[in-house]
Design a protein around this nucleic acid. Structure first.
Lengths: 256, 256
DNA sequence: AATGTCTATATTGTAAACAGTATGGCGGTT
DNA sequence: AACCGCCATACTGTTTACAATATAGACATT
């Protein structure tokens, strides 16, 4: 509907009213506790792919309203961490087998680049951070599964931080999460995402500024992860059906 | 509030009710006309960085409701295409100078990889697509600025498609958009994002399967783009202030 | 003259009620 | 006994109205 403005003021506006914001706090929705909660729950594998995320339940769980939850779920759906199905609700995203492979391939590319850039930019404080993290990983309590999962992911994030490129850092974070989902979908549960023994080697190579060696080690490390997943074989009949339906859906959308 | 369910049914549920969706149409919000409209408007530089995106105005412009607009804006904010400021509204995202540089650096990495993968996977239909696009670009109407902008962006998207990795394709799309914003922010308006003359060379090198040459040409092409932007100098006083405030905000958040 | 305060207005954010859609159990039919 | 349609229920999606906040102009003050 058109606004019924009183028209009392002068309608002319020679300069079109500088509407551009100069400096404000732009706290992102990423800082939202609901988003963070779901994210950590997923990266710690407490939420499995395909799990339903009911709006009412989440609202009461987090002690907030449904609107807030909807916003958080929409954001997570934009980032492909949850899947929203019309009139059915939100579910933890379950990547396809092809998508899982693509995620690993993307990580090989991006993390090779972050390792390279991290070595180029490595300075005193960077070395200290890296050493501190390696020590943390070496002496952490291996019985605390959730802490382990967080720590091993943090190593890759730290390397991305050292690379000094925020865009690559965002992408690494995103790929890390989607890797968690890929592994959780296609591997027996309970094991960590990374074989943690590889991290000290990679870290040492970075500290030694051995670029070729560090890149090779990182690539190998990611390939090791990838080899721990297998396509679902027991659900072939079902998967065939889903393939058919998705094919039909895609075709209908392309034709229409 | 807690749901006041009648409790007439048996509360026990031995099997936790298979809630996982098997096969459904999952049309993404990316297909939404509002999202697409804003996206193309930005990539065609009809919407400039910093422009205000009022909810009511967009709602009446698209002939839909404010809620719909809000969802679309939230999605675009998740993808860093718009910036949402609490109680102020949504604005077309304006990257910082550092972010602009990071975007170009990320593109160098990712597009070098897509070029490489595209050459590896290049088959008959891929060659045909590439040739068709190059012909389109060669004989298009150079006076139609908006068509030119779309076409030159499509070249990079096509290469990413040929690489056969959906995750990298998504990332390329995202980086493409953010490149548009970066160039629009730091360059005088009106010029295309790419110097279009470079595309035929890159395409020819891909068709010739000259991997090293194609990667080099792509890197060079992106560097050329990057060299066309300059940090804002006339707004140094303002930028200094914003830098200070952002510094303070970040510090306060880190300390708190 | 520049700054500070106040008020009206416009715009965003939130809550609650309503409508639409899928789910699951029940009964009827072959 | 298995299958099919029907109906109650639970959940998501949407509308509506209201509350909170920022903006812009006018006015008072130093």
């Amino acid at each position: 509907m058109k606004r019924s403005r009183p028209l009392k003021r002068k309608p002319k506006r020679p300069e079109p009213k500088r509407e551009e914001p100069e400096a404000v706090d732009l706290r992102s929705i990423d800082d939202d506790p609901v988003v963070q909660g779901i994210l950590t729950a997923i990266s710690q594998k407490r939420l499995k792919p395909g799990a339903k995320l009911g709006e009412d339940k989440l609202a009461s769980a987090f002690g907030t309203t449904r609107i807030h939850i909807r916003q958080a779920l929409a954001h997570l759906a934009s980032r492909k961490v949850v899947m929203q199905i019309p009139n059915r609700g939100a579910f933890v995203y379950r990547p396809s087998w092809e998508e899982a492979q693509d995620i690993f391939a993307a990580r090989r590319i991006i993390e090779a680049a972050t390792v390279s850039a991290a070595i180029d930019r490595l300075d005193k404080s960077g070395k200290a951070e890296l050493k501190a993290h390696m020590e943390l990983e070496a002496r952490h309590d291996r019985n605390d599964r959730w802490a382990s999962l967080s720590l091993t992911a943090e190593f890759h994030i730290l390397v991305a931080k050292l690379a000094g490129n925020r865009v690559l850092l965002e992408m690494s974070r995103e790929l890390m999460l989607r890797t968690s989902l890929a592994i959780a979908t296609f591997e027996q549960p309970g094991e960590p995402d990374c074989s943690p023994d590889a991290h000290p080697d990679i870290g040492a190579l970075i500290l030694a500024r051995d670029k070729a060696g560090a890149i090779h080690a990182m690539r190998h490390h990611i390939e090791e992860m990838e080899q721990r997943i297998r396509p679902h074989e027991g659900e072939d009949e079902v998967d065939e059906l889903t393939a058919i339906f998705q094919e039909i859906g895609a075709r209908a959308r392309a034709d229409g």
